[in-house]
Write a protein that binds this DNA or RNA. Structure first.
Length: 472
RNA sequence: GCUCCCUUCGUCUAGAGGCCUAGGACGGAGCCCUCUCAAGGCUUAAACGCGGGUUCGAAUCCCGCAGGGAGCGCCA
């Protein structure tokens, strides 16, 4: 049987690193086995589900490098892939449950349920459904419906026994049925509820492996009970530990990490996030920067961690550096430009490749590219303190000598620096630091040789003039 | 409250009774390379939550405790 995994987001907001990592693991597992990743949109909550969110999610997932072979946009044999379009399928399954006497209508109001929950909680009991409507007789039910009341449908959970299953990451799990209350599978408005539609779809779509957040672990017995009542085959489950923020608290919208869109806006490269996420809570024996296919080959559910993982920007930054180093010139250029047109204006077309090659070792964010473009082509911002000090520490007459050498024409930096060294008697740091400071306004940066080739001779002369003035 | 899950360096983790004087990676420190920064190479500091068992021997097994998390929704 070929592997079929699924990612089933609810289009109610932006996709977060936690969900993205789940989606990635699903994609990696499917790809490793030459299987299929299904994208299923769980939009049963009509009030909160937005098509625009779905579109954004698909775009974000694609940006990360997650590809699905079946889904609402690409189709497939098990569609439709939006739950809002699968009403008939759910109705048929619900009908089966009704015939088998496994469900009953519940007329309790939200307020009644709330009161009951509170009462149980304060009595030190688990807030399970009290079973108020479980024993309603047919006439009683008919009377309520005649009054115009719209019932929700509850699944009757067996009082006795337990559900046992093997979780791929947490191994054997046992849940007693007496701890599970009858739960709603269809809302009063006729829409299917999560436990039901999610489990039914997994079975109907032939999903073999469900990788999902640990928050679903205790929900699993409910779905297993449902599937069993329906005579449907259950998938294998693997419950992933959650991703937490700095203090160990669950990753929220406001804390570190954030949504894919935020990270993207910060200039994080998708390959960087891909490499980081693949290793967050999953171990690879190889720590080398890798592409999707390589990561897929090394993916294994047995390498999944059991404890919550911290989303750590320091580690993300490492992969970001790797991603910058590995990116092709054109791609890096596009990334640098992304949204900031000034770069396109400043860097001449013919220089682009050389510019990227010069600065790639010194940048991790697109804004850094603009900074170097300014250094090479624009108005140099005031020198930093250290660079300024280097200027002042240059030997007396140093820049006079520099300008002298410059006028005798110096096409390349190396021979130029050599000539300056000969003229001033300086070498090493004493020679190079003032030159770098004068030319770039800072003491760190790409090789001077590369920058020099990009700079206009007139600009170079102007910078040295300015340095001489500062040095006096 | 009840049920369940989790707990090894700062972080991600290896570790499935002796191979552990606990390994790797990121980050830190130092050295080398080098005009600088980065990269790279080398070196180094840094951890088994606590308490009881079991055993010749425990990070690994058992029991408590503590801490963190999840579920108990007409949210998914």
């Amino acid at each position: 049987m070929t592997t079929r995994t699924r990612f089933a987001p609810s289009p109610t907001g932006e996709i977060h690193v936690g969900n993205a990592r789940t989606a990635l693991f699903c994609a990696l597992l499917a790809a490793r086995d030459g299987g299929t990743l299904i994208l299923r949109i769980e939009d049963t909550d009509a009030a909160r589900s937005l098509r625009s969110h779905e579109d954004e999610m698909r775009a974000d997932l694609a940006w990360l490098g997650v590809r699905w072979q079946e889904g609402p946009d690409v189709g497939g044999p098990k569609g439709p892939y939006r739950q809002s379009e699968r009403g008939e399928l759910y109705a048929a399954k619900l009908e089966q449950l009704a015939t088998r006497g496994r469900v009953y209508p519940c007329f309790c109001t939200a307020l009644e349920l709330e009161v009951s929950r509170k009462a149980q909680l304060s009595a030190g009991k688990p807030p399970r459904y009290a079973g108020t409507c479980a024993k309603l007789s047919v006439p009683e039910i008919e009377a309520r419906i005649a009054k115009g009341l719209k019932p929700a449908i509850r699944f009757r959970v067996p009082e006795e026994g337990e559900t046992v299953f093997m979780d791929l990451v947490r191994s054997r799990q046992v849940f007693a049925h007496k701890d599970i209350g009858d739960f709603i599978i269809q809302r009063a408005d006729g829409s299917p509820a999560f436990f039901f539609s999610n489990a039914v779809d997994d079975a109907l779509m032939g999903v073999t492996h469900v990788l999902r957040g640990e928050d679903h672990l205790a929900n699993t017995p409910r779905q297993l009970l449902l599937l069993d009542a329906l005579g449907l085959k259950a998938p294998q489950y693997a419950h992933l530990s959650l991703i937490v923020g700095q203090g160990g608290a669950p990753l929220s919208k406001r804390e570190g990490g954030g949504s894919l869109r935020e990270l993207r806006a910060e200039g994080v490269l998708p390959e960087a996030l891909l490499n980081y996420l693949a290793r967050l809570g999953h171990t690879y024996s190889d720590n080398a920067f890798a592409d999707f296919d390589t990561l897929a080959r090394g993916f294994d559910v047995s390498h999944l961690g059991h404890s919550p993982a911290h989303f750590d920007h320091t580690q993300l930054d490492h992969w970001q550096g790797e991603a910058v180093r590995h990116a092709a010139d054109e791609r890096l250029w596009d990334w640098l430009v992304g949204g900031r047109q000034e770069l396109e204006r400043m860097v001449p077309e013919r220089d682009r490749k050389n510019f990227v090659e010069a600065v790639r070792g010194n940048i991790t964010r697109p804004s850094h590219g603009s900074e170097w473009a300014t250094v090479v082509y624009g108005d140099l911002p005031p020198a930093g303190d250290e660079a300024d000090a280097a200027l002042h520490q240059a030997a007396a007459g140093f820049f006079d000598a520099v300008l002298g050498v410059l006028r005798q024409s110096a096409p390349e930096f190396k021979p130029f620096a050599k000539a300056v060294g000969a003229a001033t008697g300086q070498s090493g740091k004493a020679l190079y630091q003032p030159l770098r400071a004068a030319l770039t306004g800072r003491l760190d940066g790409p090789e001077m040789e590369r920058l020099w080739r990009l700079m206009d001779p007139k600009l170079i002369e102007a910078r040295f003039d300015r340095a001489r003035a500062a040095n006096l």
